[in-house]
Simulated assay, not measured.
Amino acid sequence: MDNNWFILSDTTQIDSPALLLYKDRVAYNINLMLQIAGDAERLIPHVKTYKMTELVRMQIMRGITKFKCATIAEAEMTAKAGASTVVIAHQLVGPKIERWAQLVQAYPQVEFVSLVDCADAASAYQVVFLRFGLTANVLVDVNNAMDRSGHPVDDQLFPFYQSLFRYPYLRVLGLHVYDGNFRDADFAARKAKSDQAFAGIKVLLEQIRTAGLPEPLVIAGGSPAQTVHTLREGVHISPGTCLVWDWGYGEGLPDQPFQWAGLVFTRVISKPKAGFITVDLGHKAIAAENPIDKRVKFLNLENYRCVSQSEEHLVLEVSDWDNWKVGDALYGVPYHICPTINLYEDAFVIQNGEWVDTWNVIARKRKIAI
């Protein structure tokens, strides 16, 4: 294995901090995601991690045509890229409902879907789509033990699901079941927790079938649980981070050998005192929601400690201070890649150590056109 795979042959034209995207590693990760799923039709990958048109198209070229997203802008980007189905994995409120209807109107060839977990939201969807003369495709969002969103798994869940068929401008497609809280490093432990939480979904599915309702689409899990849910017959999986991976998932999910494909590039900008260097990788350049020692792992630096971070600076205590000079480059793996990518307008695409292209992180915007 090439331990220096990340090193660029020429850094003179790349300003720092920067986001580097290693295209061949992304392609490897897409292949592995397909192997885990067993079939491109089972995949509805999430685009929120990378937010780039070109990465959606790389997957479409491999037969993946259905995607999940988190924002209207991500939905618009994915539709423009050529997706057949786009699931907006939120219960939409306020102006977002009308923007969703505008997307449906603007891209009639695309099946747009959103989530619903209560009667208030269903009624709001009905009002807007009635006005547009369109149909809102929905999945019932189920709170499958994560307690973040969704209808609880209780004796009111099936009656709620059944009630949605009375809305003439809603089309009920099935269930959205996200269990991103199960992240045990041990696969057996992760599977046991996911299986326990999914037991209520099995009961719900039986109720739906017994009632003679249409066979539901079931979308379950993200990157951590994809290896669990792929074992469930008829369940679609929606990983996303696995396309670029990060230090956090790489450390916590040893059963999933995806490759780091997105790095941050930074430079030494000061040596303020003996034993300390400062790089230009502040809060504005890497996700900073975790403790300071869980934000970045440098690949070409050993025996160091992150001391402090501010908006533009990251101070490191290093053991080989004399070996570093102002202007030297460091390459880091973010602990959490999703919000890190969101901090950059563009990604520098790297192949064979060369900068070959620049891809716009277009869906970091809250609005593209709609």
Rank of each mutant, 00 (worst) to 15 (best):
Y331Q: 03
Q105R: 13
Q35I: 06
L330M: 03
L343N: 03
V218Q: 08
I60P: 08
A145M: 13
G275A: 09
M61S: 14
L55Q: 07
S194Q: 02
K202A: 07
W100R: 04
T71G: 06
R295V: 11
A287P: 01
G353A: 10
V113I: 15
M33H: 02
D322G: 06
H283Y: 12
H236V: 00
A75P: 07
Y335T: 03
R364Q: 12
S16M: 06
W355Y: 05
D2E: 13
A329D: 11
I368Q: 07
E54W: 07
S310P: 03
L115G: 04
A89T: 14
G353V: 11
L139F: 14
A185H: 14
N342Q: 14
Q309G: 11
A73H: 10
D10Y: 07
E345Y: 06
R42G: 11
W100S: 11
Y169I: 00
I362T: 15
L139H: 12
M52D: 02
N3R: 13
L164S: 04
V56Q: 03
I88E: 09
D255L: 03
L204D: 00
Q256I: 03
K284V: 11
Q59D: 14
Q109V: 04
N29Y: 08
F276Y: 13
E251W: 04
E289C: 10
C69M: 07
Q162L: 01
R209W: 05
S16P: 05
N31P: 01
L173A: 04
V86I: 14
F182A: 02
D15K: 15
W245R: 01
A124E: 14
V307E: 09
D357G: 09
F265T: 00
L281W: 02
Q259G: 00
L343A: 05
I7P: 01
Y107N: 10
E302Q: 13
S123M: 08
A101D: 06
A185E: 09
F160S: 02
K48T: 13
Q259P: 01
G353M: 07
V315T: 10
Q156G: 09
E312Y: 07
R131T: 13
W359F: 09
W260R: 03
V87T: 14
S163I: 00
R366P: 11
K66W: 08
D24A: 14
K365F: 09
D246V: 01
V315E: 07
T65C: 13
L231A: 15
I208R: 04
P254D: 01
Y50P: 05
K284T: 15
I60V: 12
V26G: 01
A122P: 02
A285C: 03
A122R: 02
K23Y: 02
F129R: 00
G38W: 07
V140T: 13
V142Q: 12
G38Q: 08
